[in-house]
Structure formats: C-alpha cells, structure tokens
Design a protein around this nucleic acid. Structure first.
Length: 301
DNA sequence: AATATTTGCAACCGCACCACC
DNA sequence: AGGTGGTGCGGTTGCAAATAT
C-alpha cells in the first residue's frame, strides 16, 4: 500500500542504509538531510540521517574507544566551564561527538554517585559485598535529585602517612578545596581503587592525576548533609569503604617525582592502546544509595 | 552453566533557533 | 509579522554486551 511505502524507518541502521547515506554525503555534502527521504533514497527522517552521519559515519571518529585520561581531563574542565554544552565541549575533542561526551559524562556521574553512595553506608561491616550490592541508579533512588558539595583534593607531597582526611590535608596534600553544594560529592579524581579488595590504596592516591579545574575558592558553609559526610572522613570507620591505608608501602616516598598525569596514548579504531581511565579499577559495586553530582556550572553559573 | 543485573552506547524525542517565503 | 521547514542541541530511552551471582 502507498501509506506503507511512506512509513518512516526507525531503530538500528543497516549497512545498506549507511552506504546510501555515505553516498549521498559524498555527492551533496553533509546537508540537505531531508532530501534523502524526499528523493526516496531512505525511509529515514532527515534528522535521523544527520544524527547517523554525525555520530557514526563521519570520518575520523573515535568509535568504540574509551576516553583517554587527557580527554577525561578536558571534559571535566570544560564541563565546569560551559556546563552541559556537549556540542561545544565536543569541539575540543577531535573524533568525539556531543553524544559521546554526553554518554561519557552520564556514566561518570553514575559512578561518582555510587562512590558517594558507598561512603554514605560506612559502618565496619559496610564493605561487605552484600551491603555494596549494586543497583542501577535512576531517578527512583531516594535523594537522586539532590546534590552536594564537591571535595577536591590536590596532591602535592608524598609522605607516607596513615590516612584520614585530616592526614591527607595536613601531610599528604596541600589543599582541599571544598565547593559547597547541597550535599557532599567526592571528586572522582580523588581516589582509585583496588578491585580485588574494594579498597583505595595510598599508592593509587599518589598516582592519580588531578586536573586543574578552575573553581572559585569560597568560604565554606556546609549543609547539614555535607557536614555529616565530612564528619565521616574523620570517622575511624570511614576508610573501611576506601580501604586501610596505614600500611602504605615505603616506596611511596619516591612517588612525588612522578608527573601527575600519566602519558597519553592515542586512541582509536585501529585498536591501538588506550590508557585506563580513573574509573577502570573501580569495583562496580562501589556505589550505593547514590546521589547525583551537580555540575560545577549548576552551582556557579 | 544459567540467570540476573549492570553498563555503555546508539538512536529517538522535544524544543529552540534560524532562514526563507 | 507569522508560518514552515531544516538543523542543532540536550535529555532520555531501549537494547545488546559485559559482568556478577
């Protein structure tokens, strides 16, 4: 029937459709998307064609390749500057689309939220995997809408010390910038974790890179929620979540000569090496009862 | 090994903006 | 000035793959 022929196709693209789209772009350039359908080449909307081209078919895309450390750093920094302007942020990342950046950020937010979640259930027994049993984060999770202060710790010295927030502050790190938000959220750059133990290791802390995200230094007035979480840093059991660190290896002393940022590797379709991200070693069940992270832009702009 | 759960990503939707008529 | 179509953007959803139990 005639109506049937006019039906608009949705869903995953077939290779044949991709080919038609590519040929169209070769002939006419990446424009006139609607004409693809009006010419009967594809039963896709112009919008759908454009999206397919921009996100998957365009040359030089880094499809199927994890964000490198440098890319992560750029996204974090630009997101703090521009907010959720994914298209704009993507222009700073060759081979990445706004969709890539958006998806990356979304995943990151969930991970961060879960880290925080775990930190919220901090009891001596809380590090058991049963308590850490993970769940998909969604809007049904109580408190999901609320967020918090961001705690950013910058490393500058490397003395091996028993670790609590105060120790980090006094001995291992020069500054702790607290950015007031409704609740408290730990900056992802804060810690890396031993996947076999659910524990953060001091050596990991020492090697984490700390992108310099420009943020205003503010007088701190914590919300009750933030104060509560901050108090947990002083709680002797707090690091049951992040792991014991007072048995840090002596070789830590040598770490301070290491660059903060690991060398970058190029990433790509050809399968070349891509460095692990900060989150690679996070146990998947680290976060629970999450609260989402507000972007700095939500707070300052 | 089978099943359940989580994660990452591709694609869609609704809205906004702009150019053209 | 207002209507229409094309395009771009950000948010959301659904599904397949990966991972956990």
């Amino acid at each position: 029937m005639e109506g049937k022929r006019e039906e608009i196709r949705k869903g995953p693209w077939k290779p044949e459709e991709d080919e038609i789209l590519i040929n169209h772009v070769k002939k006419y350039g990446p424009r006139d998307w609607s004409s693809i359908r009006s010419k009967g080449l594809l039963q896709r909307t112009g919008k759908s064609c454009r999206l397919r081209w921009v996100n998957k078919l365009r040359p030089n895309l880094k499809n199927g390749c994890k964000f490198s450390l440098e890319e992560e750093r750029v996204v974090i920094e630009l997101q703090s500057q521009f907010g959720n302007k994914w298209a704009r942020i993507a222009t700073y990342l060759p081979g990445r689309t706004d969709n890539d950046v958006k998806n990356f950020w979304s995943s990151r937010q969930k991970r961060l939220a879960r880290i925080l979640q775990n930190s919220n259930i901090n009891t001596p027994s809380s590090s058991s995997s049963s308590i850490f049993k993970s769940h998909k984060i969604n809007k049904e999770v109580p408190g999901f809408e609320t967020v918090a202060s961001e705690c950013q710790i910058q490393k500058s010295s490397t003395e091996s010390q028993p670790c609590s927030l105060s120790h980090i502050n006094n001995n291992n790190y020069d500054t702790i910038k607290m950015v007031p938000l409704p609740d408290l959220v730990i900056n992802p750059k804060l810690m890396d974790f031993d996947t076999t133990t659910d524990h953060a290791r001091v050596e990991d802390l020492q090697q984490i890179s700390f992108p310099l995200v420009p943020q205003p230094q503010l007088d701190i007035t914590f919300s009750p929620g933030s104060q509560e979480l901050l108090a947990r840093f002083e709680d002797p059991y707090f690091f049951d979540v992040f792991g014991p660190v007072d048995d840090a290896p002596p070789e830590l002393a040598a770490v301070d000569q290491q660059p903060f940022l690991k060398p970058l590797a190029t990433c790509c379709r050809d399968g070349s090496e891509n460095p692990d991200t900060f989150f690679d070693d996070f146990p998947t069940d680290m976060f629970d009862q999450i609260e989402p992270l507000l972007s700095p832009s939500d707070i300052f702009f």
